[in-house]
Each structure stands twice: as C-alpha cells, then as structure tokens.
Design a protein around this nucleic acid. Structure first.
Ligand SMILES: [Zn+2]
Length: 242
DNA sequence: GATGCCGGGAT
DNA sequence: ATCCCGGCATC
C-alpha cells in the first residue's frame, strides 16, 4: 500500500500514511497548521483530499466489470480496432497448424507480399504457401491466438461473447492486416476500365495530396529546425499551403 | 523508398 | 498548450 500525492504536478510518493499527510500539509497546504490566530481551526483532515492510497498487493479487489470487452462503434473510420477484428478470417497462408476449433493462430509479421491479383484478363491462381523463404529471413514469429469469429463488417455489436480471456503480452495493442477492402470473402471485383482504375469508394472525404513541396522536402532532414512548426510535428504544413 | 499528415501519446 | 511519433495514404 503506497500513498501518492495528487497535487497537480506533484508526484510525491511514500509508503506511510503519516508521511504523505505531512508532505501534503507542509508542501501544499499551509506550511503551518495550528496557527495562533483567532479561535477558529478549519484544518481538519483535509490532507485526505490531496493524496490517494493505492493497493499494491492483489488483495480484496476484483474488476467490477468483467464482461463486455470492446465498445461498439458506428461504421465510421476507426481502423484501429476494425483491423484486428476483421483479421479473424484474413488468414491466408496458414493451413494445418492448430487443431483447436474456434481458434486460429496467426503469425504477426510486418512483411508479406499480399498482392496476387490481376487487373486484366487471364485467370489467376492466388495461393502461395512457402514456409522458408530463399534468404534466411528470421521472423520474430510472434504467435497470437484470437477467437475465430465472423468479421463484424455489417452490423453486430458484440456483447458478452466467449469466455476467452485475451492476455495481451508485453507488447502493444494488437495490429494486423493493413487496410484492406474487406473480408476475403470476395475474391475479385472491380473490373471496369483497363488502364484507368478509379476509386470512388472508401471515404468520400479523402484528401488528394497536393503537389507542392513542403518544408520537409525543401529543407531536408538535415535542417529540420527550419521547417515550419507543423511540419516538425508531422502535422499539416502551414508555410506551404497547396 | 520517401513524403505528408491524422490520430494519439507524453509532458 | 507544446512537442513528438506510429502508422497510413499517397507519391
Ligand atoms: Zn511546413
């Protein structure tokens, strides 16, 4: 059990109740208490409001809510979570591997040529499964297990689903499958005009990058301190509007 | 591969 | 508010 000062900006932390109260009183509240002034002492145990006691050991404490996991989101732009969910069926280069019904194993790797589509005629045979590549490329082979579920593309606010406990390893969240059209249950479509493929879907409000060079390209990384502030922060440039 | 920048995190 | 980065669309 530790005690932490909650005064704005203060990060004082101690292990005893007396210490923290003393700290709060001296450092933040009036450095004086029983002042000889008037017959009025309004200094109760007000220190209690400026620190918190934190339990360390796993004692009498259990998560209040153990059911619902994620939140439902409108079919808006939020690939962060859509990706990992939609990926439940995007597994392509794995066949026999795990024999657990309802569980699929994925190997997270940043590479992987996924292109296998022809824009014109002729048939296509998209299926390549090669365990070992030519050169010795070692992959971290971070295996993760996710519940095999249908991609929530249309509408399905998943509530209390399976009693699967997702233990996030000492990694970040969980990211898979870059922005793709959608579930793999739609091999090919979009065969309009050979030579000029337009993209109308996606998002009506998609920027179309201008052609003016911005601070980054103009000054180069070597002179980053001359970029406009926004460029330094990887935000929209304000010096060279387009 | 490089560039531009949104979304999100840290202080 | 200021500063910075991950990751993505785009070139
Ligand atoms: Zn700029």
């Amino acid at each position: 059990m530790v005690f932490q000062c909650t005064w704005p900006g203060c990060l004082y932390l101690t292990t005893t109740c007396a210490s923290i109260e003393s700290h709060v009183r001296n450092s933040h509240l009036g450095p004086r208490t029983g002042d000889a002034e008037d017959g009025e002492d309004m200094s109760d145990h007000e220190e209690e409001f400026y620190y918190t006691e934190v339990e360390l050991g796993l004692h009498t404490s259990s998560p209040p809510t153990l059911s619902h996991r994620d939140m439902a989101r409108p079919p808006h732009e939020d690939p962060e979570y859509q990706k990992q969910l939609a990926n439940a069926a995007v597994l392509k280069g794995s066949f026999a591997l795990s024999s657990s019904p309802g569980v699929a194993s994925v190997a997270s790797s940043g590479l992987g040529s996924s292109a296998a589509s022809n824009s014109s005629s002729s048939s296509s045979v998209s299926s390549s499964s090669s365990l070992g590549s030519a050169a010795g490329s070692s992959t971290p082979a971070t295996l993760i297990h996710i519940p095999a579920q249908l991609p929530p593309w249309s509408s399905s606010a998943s509530a209390a689903t399976s009693p699967v406990s997702i233990k996030t390893s000492p990694l970040k969240h969980l990211k898979l499958s870059p922005r793709s059209g959608s579930c793999p249950y739609q091999p090919v479509l979009s065969v309009s005009a050979p030579g000029t493929a337009y993209k109308v879907p996606g998002s009506p409000t998609r920027k179309v990058r201008g052609d003016t060079k911005k601070c980054r390209k103009v000054y180069g990384m070597e002179h980053r301190d001359q970029w406009c502030t926004q460029c330094k922060w990887k935000k929209a440039c304000t010096r060279f509007g387009d």
